[in-house]
Amino acid sequence: MIEILSNYLTGALLIIGSAFAVVAAIGINRLPDVYSRMHAASKAGTLGSGVMLIALAIYAQDTGTTLRALAGVVFFLLTAPISSHLLAKAAYAVGYPMWKGTVLDEMPPDSRIGADD
């Protein structure tokens, strides 16, 4: 009974996770600038791989594997924002421009390296 349930759940999670991965991939192709693309990659991408690891955790039904898979999910959730934050900061600091449709930029003017020379 539990095995049947876990099979259905695993399959559903696999499809959901890969659908999010596809959406993230479409997003980084359609969105206009690197800052907007980061939204797609850091959210949909993280959720995609996280959900698929959870599917593996449910499927395994073995304490060690389940624990490691869940630890991996937590690890991805912790690191994905950090890497995209650092990338956004670096891209902004060295002067990669935002999309021309950008409506607001409240970053302090001295945050771009070499902006004052």
């Binding site: 991965a21 993230a24 990659a41 990338l87």
Partner: peptide, 15 residues
């Protein structure tokens, strides 16, 4: 960003 996303897709593949 694309390479980062590739890693996420590869993790999905591995799962």
């Amino acid at each position: 960003l694309g390479l980062d996303m590739l890693v996420a897709a590869a993790i999905g593949f591995i799962a």
